[in-house]
Amino acid sequence: MFFPTDQAVPDTAQAAASTPYDSVWANPEVPTKAADGLEAVMLAQDKLYVVLAVVLIIWIGLIVFVLRTDQRLRKLERSVETGIPEEPAEA
């Protein structure tokens, strides 16, 4: 099932007033353990570093894609230089 009802944080009295899936937010006692390492960093500067993380993920993802295209070009170049065809590209 995609929508397990046993949420990691159990619903509390307020749950009836909330939507079925926002148990975390609906919980009036948001677990307020002191922000530890990663969270302390990410919550600093009004959470600006969360945006930085998102931008970096996209940047790295796209760069990996570009490098893989580069790899294919390199293969083609080698195949042209040697005159021997590479294995046909995978589907």
Partner: peptide, 17 residues
């Protein structure tokens, strides 16, 4: 990542279905 530090702040949840 966005949800981890907004909806799930303080809960250590990255994915809550």
């Amino acid at each position: 990542v966005w949800a981890r530090f907004t909806w799930y702040q303080g809960t250590d949840l990255w994915w809550n279905f």
